[in-house]
Computed example of a mutant assay.
Amino acid sequence: MMRAFASPLSRPSRRGVHRTPLERVEYALIVSTLLLMVVLTLQPMLHLLAVSLLAPGRVAGMNGLSVLPDGFSLDVWRLLLAHPNVQRGLLNSLLITGAGTVINVVATALMAWALAQRALPGRRVIFLAVLLTIVFEPGIIPDYFVMKRLGLLDSYWSVILYKAVNAWYLIILIRFFEEIPKELLEAAELDGANPFQTFFRVVLPLAKPALATITLFYLVF
């Protein structure tokens, strides 16, 4: 009944946001600039794709600004994918990216959950050590000697385990885990869940947005 007598002023307006002429000009300039940046970014990539779809003898006659191939041929792709080095490179990329991302996300999530526990002994010291890796980047030479001492040179593990836990992504997960209501964790404990069950059945489902974010970061970077 209260909704029926609600004032029209309290209802959200369905009309568009009114803009002044100056705001419209600013909006048009922003949109135009963004569209121009998109075109300038995509044009070289689309041009390369168009060149790859041409027959080898017709590449020289293609305009440098064209994004549509003058004809269609998969000869270049067949030649490229038939090369053993390219096949090995694609396999290495898939293996390292897939296995590396899984290991990175699992290791980051476990470490973040441990550091999110305020009762953890030495928590501040460990967290300070993590922050120091951001401020003082050791570089590739110390990492090389670490991998050499571990006997991981010339193996997939030297690439997969290299910076398996990123400090920035670790901080993202720590802050997310700290925001989980303690009542949920206490309820799981009262139901008889051990720490591992609480982590995998309560914490991780709640952390899907944060996990998806760092998974995307690990895949790209």
Rank of each mutant, 00 (worst) to 15 (best):
L53M: 12
A193I: 07
R118I: 05
L219H: 11
K182G: 09
I126N: 06
R124S: 08
A167R: 00
L131Y: 02
F127D: 04
T215V: 03
A99E: 03
A6D: 07
P195E: 14
Q117N: 09
F5P: 00
S66N: 09
E137R: 09
N92I: 13
F217T: 02
E183C: 06
L91Y: 11
L204M: 05
I172Q: 02
Q117S: 08
T33E: 10
N92F: 11
V39K: 04
L95F: 12
Q117C: 03
D191L: 10
I214S: 00
G71R: 03
I180N: 12
E183S: 14
R15A: 11
P121W: 01
L53G: 04
R118G: 04
T41S: 15
L81C: 10
G122V: 14
F217D: 04
H47P: 04
R88A: 15
M111H: 05
V106N: 00
A188V: 05
V159N: 09
A99V: 15
D154F: 08
V76Y: 06
A188P: 06
K148H: 14
K208T: 05
L206E: 09
W77L: 06
L131V: 01
R3Q: 10
A129Y: 12
Q197N: 13
L80D: 03
L204Q: 01
V125C: 08
L91N: 03
L79E: 13
R24C: 09
G192P: 09
N194R: 04
N166R: 03
A99C: 14
G98K: 12
R124D: 15
P209F: 10
P84A: 10
W157C: 03
L150K: 02
W168K: 00
P84K: 04
K208Y: 04
K163Y: 10
Y218R: 13
T41M: 14
P142V: 03
D75C: 04
E26S: 04
M62V: 04
L35I: 14
A28L: 11
L29F: 15
R149V: 09
K208C: 04
G57H: 14
A4M: 09
Q117L: 04
L132N: 00
Y169E: 07
L131E: 00
T198G: 06
F199S: 07
V165Q: 00
A188D: 03
L68D: 08
N92M: 08
L42S: 07
T108C: 02
V105Y: 00
L49Y: 11
T198E: 11
G139W: 14
L22P: 01
P44R: 07
L80M: 08
E26Q: 11
F196P: 02
E137S: 13
S13G: 15
V165L: 01
H83W: 06
V135Y: 07
L22F: 05
